[in-house]
Design a protein around this nucleic acid. Structure first.
Lengths: 201, 201
DNA sequence: GTCTATAAGGGGATAGAC
DNA sequence: GTCTATCCCCTTATAGAC
C-alpha cells in the first residue's frame, strides 16, 4: 500500500526544499504553501510561524550535516586513515544528494549565530580529543584543526563554490558529479601525503 | 586636508557593509540609508533601486575576489610553486580584511546565477590554459581542476566555515586570525606534497 | 483539519517642498 | 541635492466559516 503523506509532512518537505534553495530571508511562506499543495493558513496552523518552521528545517539539516562526520570521527576504534576514507565517502555521497546543504547551513549560520548556538548545544560531538590522541600516537606533522579544516574543506568546497567552478569553465556541468566522485577517492590520499612527516627526497 | 566623503560614496560604503553581512534578501534599504547617515530617497536618487545598488556592490566585490588570483595565475613567467605561495598570501591577507567576502559572493552566486553570468563576462580570466601547460611541463600528479579547487578551498574554507569552526571550539575566537596566518605559510607546502608524483616509501 | 478573506505592518519607491 | 510624507504592493499572520 502507498503510505499517504500527511499535510504536516508535505509542508515540512516543501519548506525543506525552498528554504535550502533560497535561504530564510528570500523564502516566502506562500511559496512553501504552494509547493506543499496547500495554503498559508495551514502552515501557521501546524508550525505557528515562518521562523518556527525554519528552526524545524534547520535542526534536521544541521543534524544531517554533522552526523555524516561526528560518529565516525569520535570512534576510538577506527584508525585515523580509515576515518578520513569513510568521511570522504559518506560526505561526498550525502552532498551529491543534497548539493545546497553546506552553503545553506554555513550561510544561515553566519547570519544567525544565536539560532545555531542553541542547536549545537543539542547535538554536541566530541571528536576532537579522540583525533588529537590518535594524531599524537601516529606522530604526524599536522594539527587537529588543520586536519579537520583541510578534510572538510576538500570535501565541501566544490559544492559551496559550484556556481563559480561551473561559470569559470573549470568543470563542465554534466561532469561535476564525476569530478567530486573522483575527488572522493583522492582526498584520503592527499590528506595522507599532507600529514606525512618527511618530505620525499 | 581631510577629504570629505560625498553622499554617493557614503551610500556605497554603507551598502557594501550591510549587503555583505546580510545578503541581498535580508537587507533593508532603510538600514543602508541609516548606516550612511542619510535617507531612503537619496539612495534611489543616486542609484535608482535596491537592485541597481546591489549590482554595483557585487561588481566591486567580485572583482576584489577574482583579482587576488587571476593576474598571478595567468602570468606565464611565474613558476607554479611561486604562484601558489603568492596566491596563498594575497588571498589570506585580503580575506582577513574582508571576512564575509567569500561566503557573500558564493551565496549570492548560487541564488542569482544570471547576475553573475553577466558580471563574469566582464572580468574573464584565462589562467587555466597557462596552469595546464605549467603542470604538464613539471609532470606532477594532479589535474588543474583539483589543484585550483584544493588551493582555493584551503584558503577560503576557514572563512566560509568560521562560525562552525568557532562554535565547535576547534579554534578560539581570538586565535582565528593567527590560525589562518599560520595556514597561509603551510598551504604552499601542503599543495606541493599533494602534487608530488611518488609516494614516500 | 482545511479553506477564504482580511487584518496589520513592513518594504521599496516616489512626489514635491525646500 | 536633500528631506518628509506618502503611496502601494507584498508579506506574515489570524479570524472565522465549513
Amino acid at each position: 500500500m502507498m503510505e499517504s503523506i500527511s499535510t504536516e509532512e508535505k509542508i515540512i518537505r516543501a519548506a525543506d526544499k525552498i528554504f535550502t534553495q533560497k535561504g530564510y530571508a528570500a523564502t516566502r511562506t506562500r511559496e512553501i504553501a504552494e509547493e506543499a499543495g496547500t495554503n498559508l493558513a495551514l502552515l501557521n496552523y501546524y508550525f505557528g510561524s515562518k521562523e518556527k518552521l525554519f528552526r524545524n528545517v534547520v535542526r534536521e539539516k544541521l543534524k544531517m550535516l554533522l552526523s555524516a562526520m561526528g560518529p565516525i570521527a569520535s570512534d576510538e576504534n577506527i584508525p585515523i586513515d580509515q576515518k578520513i576514507k569513510m568521511i570522504s565517502e559518506n560526505y561526498t555521497q550525502l552532498l551529491l544528494e543534497n548539493e545546497d546543504l553546506p552553503l545553506f547551513i554555513l550561510n544561515e549560520w553566519s547570519v544567525n549565530k544565536k539560532l545555531f548556538a542553541d542547536l549545537i548545544r543539542e547535538t554536541r560531538q566530541h571528536a576532537e580529543p579522540v583525533i588529537e590522541k590518535q594524531l599524537r600516537e601516529s606522530g604526524v606533522a599536522i594539527s587537529v584543526e588543520d586536519l579537520i579544516v583541510n578534510t572538510l574543506g576538500m570535501i565541501m568546497f566544490p559544492f559551496i563554490a559550484k556556481p563559480m567552478i561551473l561559470s569559470s569553465g573549470l568543470v563542465q556541468k554534466d561532469q561535476f558529479a564525476m569530478f567530486v566522485e573522483k575527488r572522493k577517492e583522492k582526498i584520503p590520499e592527499w590528506i595522507k601525503k599532507i600529514t606525512v612527516k618527511q618530505e620525499p627526497l
